[in-house]
Design a protein around this nucleic acid. Structure first.
Lengths: 197, 197
DNA sequence: ACAAGTTTAGACTCCAAGTCTAAACCCGTC
DNA sequence: GACGGGTTTAGACTTGGAGTCTAAACTTGT
């Protein structure tokens, strides 16, 4: 895949909307051409097909997420605090790129079948969380769990699915409102304070 | 869509594998015909297209899940205990129908675009959880959360994504092993016992 | 001016989806 | 045991979108 000039990359955002709204199969390359203003022949000059266009969009956004998450993870706070920051960073990017993130989460199968993308998803969502869970046990800010891999997936699902509920219904996603709701569940749990049950 | 005789419905299981492994678009109707032994013309006699075949499979499994969840929810235990049972029931069905459930979770976008399926997903996963969260607050076995809708989505994501981690990697999913891992996070939270942080 | 890369319209090929036809089959009923 | 309705199936056919190819116009650096 040839290097995509910024001018074209910018216009492709419109394609993400189509992919998110109708899905990849119900979006014709011709539709992408009209929506983005980039002619079909030009699209094929840069991309092998529409799946590659989606891959490009996903990659861009996942890179952005990996970057923001990396910043969040680097602070000198406790792992628990940094975990909260990571979740906020993830939500921020999802709020910033709603269409791309919807296309990702609503097509996890396709994403998983593209090794580059699968990797980037792991880097952006899973690995940082897994690392922080581990550090949290060591610095005492988080408790150990029996199966840390599952715990990390629980976090992944919690973040992506609660965000998706907003993205898919067209409501705007406020990271500042949503992250406390998610974190209060996964950090404090749902059991009431008086634990007599 | 004509009523699908049991004999045909049974053979369609093989189609779920294809849909889960390659995705819908990379599965030709002819492939489904070969895999299931049901000839293409017969498939078109019963279904309007491959999307309808997937819809049928999803509907079957979601119905099964709704049924099992309904049983779990009806006991006279506390809401917290019944919530745990609901999660186990959901995991049990996912373990029982791995291919169909993978096809569902890996194609949430498509599922959401089919109103019948979107409804059934709500019935099988979301509504029972939402109801139990509510009852839990009233019977005191669960604490109230600021945004119950989000809490329910957190649970949805926690269950589906941790299960998907197994389904997508071909490892068999043991509900009895997985459910405690999930529940320990969402019920007890990740904060350590000594809450000095 | 020229070379090398880019952009684009438009014609073209190919493949899979889905339609249609008609023959064979099955099954309950008169 | 023939009839009529639904079922099953092969195979021919139509259609539409994906992706390829060509060649001309354009852009940019030398």
């Amino acid at each position: 895949m040839r290097h995509v000039p910024a001018q074209i990359a910018a216009r492709l955002t419109a394609a993400a909307e189509l992919f998110a709204d109708r899905g990849l199969e119900d979006t014709k390359v011709e539709d992408v051409a009209t929506a983005t203003g980039v002619p079909k022949a030009t699209l094929y000059y840069y991309f092998a097909g529409k799946e590659q266009i989606l891959a490009f969009l996903l990659q861009e956004t996942l890179q952005q997420m990996a970057d923001e998450v990396a910043i969040a993870i680097e602070s000198s706070d406790s792992a628990a605090v940094r975990l909260a920051e990571v979740v906020r960073a993830q939500l921020r990017v999802m709020a910033d790129q709603p269409a791309v993130c919807r296309a990702l989460i609503e097509n996890l199968g396709r994403a998983g079948r593209m090794p580059e993308i699968a990797n980037s998803v792991t880097e952006a969502y899973y690995s940082p969380v897994q690392q922080l869970l581990d550090e949290g046990v060591r610095d005492g800010s988080l408790r150990a769990t029996k199966d840390p891999a599952t715990t990390a997936m629980v976090l992944f699902g919690a973040v992506t699915m609660s965000a998706l509920a907003y993205l898919a219904t067209g409501r705007s996603l406020s990271p500042e409102d949503l992250s406390p709701s998610i974190l209060s569940v996964v950090l404090d749990g749902l059991r009431p304070a008086d634990s007599a049950n």
